[in-house]
Design a protein around this nucleic acid. Structure first.
Lengths: 241, 241
DNA sequence: AATTGTGAATTCCTTCACAGCC
DNA sequence: GGCTGTGAAGGAATTCACAATT
């Protein structure tokens, strides 16, 4: 209904996830600038803040339209609105968390999510001792048996998997079968997604081991890392041979 | 003392973090194979499991030595030992967590870490109500004022930052000043690391927004993601202009 | 004068394809 | 025959550098 749903004039084909992840970073930056009352910003000044190349920022944005003004830069609020639209944050997402262990509980109570765009509407576990109790948010923990029904009823479009590795794949299959196309996975395991479904895995083991490698490295001459965590994602090898 | 500290015959210069992250994945795979009593594995069979290219696996490994046997493949236990050494997991790392909110507590109690290699030896917070109490692990929560002293005393070499974004940078500076070179950051903020220090940021906001983008995308023709979460890290723009 | 948007150049990563070895 | 290790080819992402625009 709002113009937020009108398609932007973009050449959206083949945009790298590295690019879209950076859009999130730009958006956060713009939020801060907007809150401080700054009206325009240049690619140069954003680049300095994140140790990126300014051309990269301009290119990232240019995939989606011409948002800047030559000689001036970008209007903070205007660009911010555009990024919200591009990232799909102008519409609400209903999120479920499966697995109410330490991590799942922490996520259920985490306040860092953009509450405008993401609402946690259901929690699941398979432990009878937990089912029926409430996480600190006044949200009841439901039996995992109800997973598929509730996903459909509550129109859940993003599921966070926070169960042990051994059962993650089974949960994932149920979730996909119920029609969910976007999954954030905290289990240290490779989930085999089919086309049309997207899995983003946050793997704490890999992150820690990466630090261990850095510390162990023979001649670690100043590998200054910098920015961080842009997932690199594989296009699939699948299908139609 | 053990031969674990003997340098491997590697050309360790300029190895991409994408490569080392994959080493973690291979290691996990080998752990499973080893537990199931499998003795050898080919790059082909590993590749299928993770939707990778077998040449990539061979190349990743070849940066560090010749671990395979032509016509046979890789000996699971042998390669596993080599990867442990390469990733620095044959030596113990002392880990501290700063910030005992939901996430910090969850991490303190998380059992997914390789306990052989990583031991959580200290927890910090700045909330007087929390200081002196114990996290579920029988670990006392210390005042953040003691951060630098304890880091040195307990020889902490990895710090996990789980504090709000607003204070993350200050904590980070203190931690680095105390001599820590490896930081896992959960605050949704860019920490400006200097050369010789490595920061790995896990940014849940970016992850969720990436899913949102996927769902919002106009013609999402089958972006099948696959593998996952290989950080892409920037070499620094810094220094010596 | 300043800053965007972008083709061209560069750098980095992946995949191919095959020689070499078991 | 099967599989590794790797040079060469191919593909992607980044950076350069400058014309275009306000």
């Amino acid at each position: 209904m709002t113009e937020a749903n009108r398609p932007l004039p973009m050449k959206t084909d083949k945009i790298s996830e590295l690019t879209t992840n950076r859009l999130s970073v730009y958006l956060r930056c713009l939020n801060e600038l907007s809150a401080s009352g700054v009206e325009t910003v240049s690619s140069q000044s954003m680049a300095e803040q994140f140790n990126l190349n300014s051309a990269q920022i301009r290119k990232d944005l240019a995939y989606f339209g011409e948002f800047g003004v030559r000689g001036v830069g970008y209007y903070v609020d205007d660009l911010r609105q555009n990024l919200l639209k591009i990232l799909g944050l102008t519409q609400r997402h209903n999120v479920a968390i499966v697995g109410m262990g330490n991590l799942g509980l922490a996520l259920a109570n985490y306040h860092g999510f953009n509450r405008q765009s993401f609402e946690i509407v259901a929690l699941f576990d398979d432990d009878p001792a937990k089912i029926g109790t409430h996480a600190r948010s006044r949200q009841e923990i439901l039996s995992i048996d109800a997973l598929q029904v509730v996903i459909r009823e509550k129109e859940i479009d993003i599921v966070i998997i926070a169960v042990p590795a051994a059962v993650a794949e089974r949960v994932f299959e149920k979730v996909v079968e119920a029609g969910v196309r976007a999954v954030l996975n905290f289990a240290p395991v490779h989930l085999h997604a089919k086309p049309g479904t997207k899995v983003k895995t946050v793997d704490l083991t890999i992150s820690l081991e990466s630090l261990s490698y850095f510390l162990a490295k023979p001649k670690s001459d100043s590998v200054n890392v910098d920015y961080s965590d842009f997932l690199h994602v594989e296009g699939e090898r699948n299908g139609t041979p």
